[in-house]
């Protein structure tokens, strides 16, 4: 499964892209890793680093390059990253334990020395962790930075604190015909998909044609809500282009206004 399907990066992905610090470097002391692999036009990490260890350059959608020799793992960049994608890893802490520093923007009541469940990039509880440090700076503007002590083999995995929740998924056989004729499309006038298809069979080829035949779009919202849905149905039925299908004509008043207000006296 790829990142684009799951939203979950893996260490292997990062190593392959040459974006993960070496074992050797991590053994020497804390170092930042930017788990940022898409060209987002963004560069606060570069600006934030006091050691000029992060380079993006003129083109702000370049990926950040971290100079692992200049980086001393100060964690300033962790709260600076708008994407919450920078972590600081340290395998020099002891032989059996390492440290992971990550951003955290949820309400919490964690304290230093708390033992918490540590979660991996997929949100799975993988091990226990001890909170070593909780930082809130003014500059970080409410992005908390937490450092967790975890078994050394989990330093590459742990990226957050596990969230306890119970949600069950169950499989169930149901009959579902996509876009059944009785599904409401225009909420204002209560017009169903079936009525819209019927209007198309009668010769409607665009938004106005459907509107005249069914009243879809004649209600309070002037078609702002159902327009896209009617458009989809016309495209499915006839294959017309969006330009030919058109839009629901905007009219005065753009939002409902009482006749009393409309007909009231004006200041001249």
């Amino acid at each position: 499964m790829k990142l684009s399907e799951t939203g979950i990066l893996t260490k292997a992905d990062l190593v392959e892209m040459g974006r993960y610090p070496s074992e050797e470097r991590m053994k020497k002391g804390p170092v930042a890793v930017a788990e940022c692999v898409q060209d987002i036009p963004c560069n606060p990490c570069e600006t934030a680093c006091p050691f000029k260890a992060i380079h993006i350059g003129e083109n702000i959608s370049n990926l950040p390059k971290i100079d692992v020799n200049k980086c001393n793992g100060c964690t300033t960049c962790v709260s600076a990253c708008s994407g919450l994608a920078i972590f600081v890893l340290d395998k020099s802490y002891s032989d059996s334990y390492g440290k992971v520093t990550f951003p955290y923007e949820y309400n919490h009541s964690f304290k230093v020395d708390d033992i918490v469940k540590a979660a991996n990039r997929g949100g799975k509880h993988v091990c226990e962790g001890k909170i070593l440090k909780i930082t809130n700076t003014q500059k970080a503007d409410r992005t908390t930075v937490i450092t967790l002590e975890v078994p050394i083999e989990y330093v590459d995995e742990v990226r957050s604190i596990y969230r306890d929740k119970q949600h069950q998924s169950s499989k169930e056989e149901i009959m579902s015909e996509k876009l059944a004729d009785d599904v409401l499309v225009c909420r204002c006038e209560e017009i169903t998909a079936g009525e819209i298809r019927e209007a198309i069979r009668q010769g409607a080829t665009d938004i106005t044609g459907v509107k005249l035949r069914t009243r879809a779009g004649m209600g309070l919202c002037q078609g702002r809500t159902c327009e896209a849905l009617v458009n989809q149905i016309i495209r499915q039925e006839l294959g017309n282009s969006p330009a030919d299908i058109g839009f629901s004509t905007p009219r005065t008043p753009q939002r409902p206004v009482t006749f009393g207000t409309l007909g009231g006296d004006l200041d001249e």
Partner: peptide, 11 residues
């Protein structure tokens, strides 16, 4: 992906 990753690491 960074927005997605924020969610996936919470499970």
């Amino acid at each position: 992906a960074v927005h997605a990753s924020k969610l996936t690491r919470e499970g």
